[in-house]
């Protein structure tokens, strides 16, 4: 009996240990970033451009580029994702072929390696769409047929599409069926029901989807490697066909390709910290919004 009890402690123990490792790994990365970067962080670091071959100054252009990139990504991606989710949850017949194909495509899209999205962005957006537009608009010099802010943002929009679809779909499904029935019984059309009843009750979920997509998009670097990110630009991007600097890409290049890696180490850490602060704030907000939203629905 005691032997069995010991075995019990052992098995329970290893599962707890596994969980502990996850939390520990997270804390170690967080504290390391704080230790290495906190002292370098300053108002100037956030608002100034890099100087002296990246060894001094700040990372403002990278922050600006990241925000702009994610903003365009959201404007393109959220409507597409939300509408697809509306189709899945409100219009499609669960057993119909189309809905199953869309679901299958979405889960596949979520599993595609991010570097492949980069190739897709280059092959489809830059080479095909961009060069196609150029052939019509400005045959003399490439305007759209080169890596740019727009194409990078579109690539990220495609990459984050599954995130949006899945969380909006879940939110729509959580709206009680009685709401829809009440609306339809009052003579509203399907679209009126969706627009006036279902969507307002799912705003929390749509918001969560958007936040998660932004957080994912802000942290991705692989799809940007050849769709428009640049290591250093003397001025901020002010047009959709400009290249841009981005936080994650900045960190990647500083850490692997700068001339004096040791000298820029504090800057690398501080950049990491800014990137982490950005993604964590977004993720935590998503967690809180979802939590509040679920509670509201349960009460209703």
């Amino acid at each position: 009996m005691t032997k069995k009890k010991l075995l019990g402690y052992f098995f329970t123990g290893i599962t707890a240990f596994a969980a502990f490792i996850i939390v520990l790994a997270f804390l170690v990365i967080l504290f390391d970033a704080l230790k290495g970067g906190a002292s370098r962080l300053s108002w100037e670091f956030l608002t100034a451009a890099p100087r002296k071959g990246m060894t001094e100054g700040g990372i403002f252009p990278a922050i600006y580029g990241t925000v702009l990139l994610v903003l365009i990504m959201t404007i393109v991606g959220i409507p597409f994702g939300t509408i697809t989710a509306i189709y899945l949850s409100e219009y499609s017949n669960e057993r119909s072929g189309v809905a199953r194909w869309i679901r299958f495509a979405v889960s596949n899209l979520a599993g595609v390696p991010s570097i492949v999205f980069g190739l897709f962005g280059l092959g489809f957006f830059v080479q095909f769409l961009g060069s196609g537009i150029d052939a019509v608009v400005s045959p003399d010099e490439p305007v759209w047929g080169k890596p740019s802010l727009l194409w990078a943002a579109m690539t990220l929009a495609v990459l984050t599409l599954p995130v949006v679809i899945v969380s909006v779909d879940e939110a729509l499904r959580n709206v009680p069926r009685e709401y829809r029935e009440a609306s339809l019984a009052l003579g509203a059309t399907k679209w009126q029901t969706v627009w006036n009843v279902v969507l307002p009750n799912a705003t929390g979920g749509i918001l969560t989807g958007a936040i998660l997509a932004v957080s994912r998009g802000a942290g991705e670097v692989a799809p940007l490697l050849f769709t428009g990110a640049a290591f250093f630009l003397p001025k901020l991007p002010n047009s959709l066909d400009d290249q841009f600097m981005q936080l994650g890409y900045h960190l990647y290049v500083l850490a692997t390709q700068s001339v004096d890696v040791e000298a820029t180490l504090p800057i690398q850490y501080a950049t990491t910290l800014v990137l982490l602060a950005l993604t964590f704030t977004l993720n935590l907000t998503a967690i809180i919004v979802r939590f509040q939203f679920r509670r509201k629905l349960v009460r209703a």
Partner: peptide, 9 residues
């Protein structure tokens, strides 16, 4: 939610 560039770093 950790960006892979941060894990890589």
């Amino acid at each position: 939610g950790l960006p892979s560039v941060v894990i890589g770093f």
